[in-house]
Design a protein around this nucleic acid. Structure first.
Lengths: 137, 137
DNA sequence: TTATATTATATGCATGTGCATACAAATGGT
DNA sequence: ACCATTTGTATGCACATGCATATAATATAA
């Protein structure tokens, strides 16, 4: 394998990834005025036991900096006049902030999830999924 | 395949992609004060016959909007007091602008390319490359 | 030819991001 | 107990981005 093949593989992977990402992001913005990062955050809250996570623990999950994540939470607290999530200072460690998924947020998440799944299914074939699994496992 | 598998495959692909991307971007910023988008732009100029391309044609290649690309070119024209690329209005269609890769830009590109290739080789195994090829072909 | 529509690029503006920093709270060493 | 260090979050700032728009040049239609 030469350098050209190597770089071409990378470029093609990027294009494949970005095409799907932008498509999903555009659809979410269009239908919910929310982006893919907002969806990821809510996804990890849903996955969690009590529909809550520490801000710090979300950083590595969502893939944003602390500051960006803090502001993302602020936006979700004030989304079109409704609170999709809420902050609550931890009783024991008063520096720490827990992010709670609210009822309205969970409802919206369920709608978004359907859109996301449709989008993924329409853009990734069964064969693609198998290849991705082989790549990332 | 259920929805969970589908979404997990996507998330894992994103993490795989972003990890490599951020690593390359960080290294380029650190060593050259240039990002991966700047590298892509120069890459396509090098690939072209005469080391030049129309701004418009670069849009789809680099994956930025017209406005972002216009400003990216401006930055490359003024990179640390040197012109890595230059604009030149097309003689026939005076609306169109050709972007030329300058000598200094090509020199820097060659250095960057080595860094990029090393970065890719250290993060993607031979098996990864084969799996990516299967995915994107 | 003249008027209208289209195309290519540049720029004002709003927004999201990371870095550096500020602040508050907890931890550790003396 | 006290002070220094570390940890968790929020915010000022600089900057890259996309959208909407402006401007200039070209193409099209009457």
């Amino acid at each position: 394998m030469n350098n050209n093949e190597l770089f071409n593989a990378w470029i093609n992977l990027t294009k494949y990834h970005d095409r799907i990402l932008k498509s999903m992001d555009y659809t979410l913005q269009d239908q919910f005025q929310l982006g893919i990062k907002e969806f990821y955050l809510m996804y990890y809250l849903v996955q969690s036991e009590q529909k809550k996570m520490r801000l710090s623990d979300l950083v590595s999950k969502v893939g944003l900096s602390h500051s960006a994540l803090s502001r993302l939470v602020t936006r979700l607290e004030q989304h079109r006049g409704e609170s999709l999530v809420e902050r609550q200072t931890d009783a024991i460690d008063k520096r720490s902030v827990d992010i709670f998924l609210m009822k309205k947020g969970e409802e919206l998440f369920n709608e978004m999830q359907m859109v996301i799944n449709n989008s993924l299914r329409s853009q990734m074939s069964e064969k693609d999924i198998q290849n991705i699994k082989r790549l990332v496992e």
